[in-house]
Design a protein around this nucleic acid. Sequence first.
DNA 1: CACCGAGCGG
Length: 630
Amino acid sequence: MASPAVLRPLPPQPPPPSSSSTDLRAHRRATIRGLDSCASMTELRQYHSQIVRLGLAADNDAVGRLLKFCALSPSGDLAYALRLFSHLPRPDPFVFNTLFRAQPASAPRSALLYSDMLQRPVHPNEFTFPSLLQSIAADRELGLGRQVHAHVLKLGFGADGYSGNNLLHMYLSCGLLAEAHSLLDAMPHRDVVSWTTMISGLSQSGLLDDARKLFDEMPERNSVSWNAMIAGYVQGGRFKEASKLFDQMQAEGVELDRYVAASMLSACTGLGALEQGQWIHRYIERSGIELDSKLATTIIDMYCKCGCLEKAYEVFSGLSRKGLSSWNCMIGGFAMHGRGEEAIKLFKEMEKEGVMPDDITLLNVLSACAHARLVHEGRHYFEYMVQAYHIEPRMEHFGCMVDLLGRAGLLEEAKKIIDEMPMEPDAGVLGALLGACKIHGNVELGEQIGRRVIELDPQNSGRYVLLANLFASAGRWEDVANVRRLMNDRGVNKEPGCSVIERNGVVSEFIAGGRSHPQAKEIYAKVDEMMERIRAEGYVPDTGGVLHDTDEKNKDHSLYYHSEKLAIAFGLLHTKSGETIRISKNLRVCRDCHAASKIMSRVFDREIIVRDRNRFHHFKGGECSCRDYW
DNA sequence: CACCGAGCGG
């Protein structure tokens, strides 16, 4: 009854045996042309048999087109392409060049194919080297790259811009910056791609300032070049410079495309700049930039990490097709806001929709449990991930469990996880236990773990401070001094606390005790007023976290001017009453700021949202969303 | 018969 679904018209059928040779030629042309609009392997097989029947099995023109579809189309079939290739008696350069472009490529395989090409011999043309060099660059096979470079010159393609730019890319990927520079100087036809390749290569080698110098000097720029530089800053964590360059790009009237939009969303995420991020999001909607699952996830991540879970969820639930990364991102969003139940609910929804979770999904679920004190659930999912999905816990999963158990006060159980895990715990895992020891005042275990952590990761200032704080809480001032001395001897500096707040799209930065802000005087006066107000409401400075063994009054004052309090003062000065104050900071919220922020949210009737290194705190009506569990 | 297919930077 039901006929099979025919999605596309069938290719032209063979001509009747009586037809003339003119008809045959026309038919042959039509078949070859039709191939260029082929959409599926099923259809391709029909064309293939057609071509064989027409006696074109050895025809590079016809088989080359078949091979192009099999090798390059997302609905193609690489194995089929290789079979076609092996049955071609005299493949031409086009056939070889097409195979170089096929994914997944690898440098050794491309090299093998290239030497096959040379032995036959089939002569490489200018289209041969770009794709060959791509796979060599991706695998950083410098030795092969140098040999191919020699061939490019010997075979007379030294002046070809595409080959030159790809050689440049290859040297940059292999980290040979000097070679890249001299190649660029020697290139006869430097173009915007050559410069952009250099900028991106230097950025990826961490030489952002060199890249910027080149960027400023290059004769011509397009949106790809701007994005190379902006993305470089973002990758290097230099979000403010990314944002400044973006403003310059806008001023010069360069088109904001999806790539620049994605880079800028990441910059906003890094800065916690909600308004700017929202502007980019609206721009994407207005300009009709296609919202693929990757870009959507970038937007969701921006909203999550800028403290706006509701907007994140709105975008998430509006997606018609949710990719794994979107689910992961949203679950992670609930986790970092301490909304563990909702994270778990979303995970169950994901399972119900038949989406297969991965190790990141489960990491986010465990992290959600850790931030919400869901010890029971955390234990469950730690077992469940292996049983249900055969996902073996990695280092990070163990770290999450140590964090979950340790923070809940189950130090012995956390220690047991570390002792029994199949790999050597890294500084992150041990650091989680150290943090738990600090919270629960277990100096003996903390000291033992702390010393191990510091030796594993001697440049990380946070762990020294944690250990020193632990000693301080036990009144062991001599050990505090020893830790400080160790830091000094090793040249490790305490990372200064830094908070940022955005107002009218402008990001202001405050450093603890810093006075470089133009309105410093006003802000400090506001802090004093704030602290006075909350003291009257029962706030008592918590000097437990202050290391200096000085008198209490000095300690109070160093607490007053923590970056977070400066940022809140700025927020109170510059926002309308009732408006939410959003702050992002580089370190974790200290106990004193946490207590003060709670009272301030009540006294000034403001919602204060703080993103710290680990998670979010929503202060409202005298309470914090973390329920003092962080 | 001769034509052509196609390669780079985010």
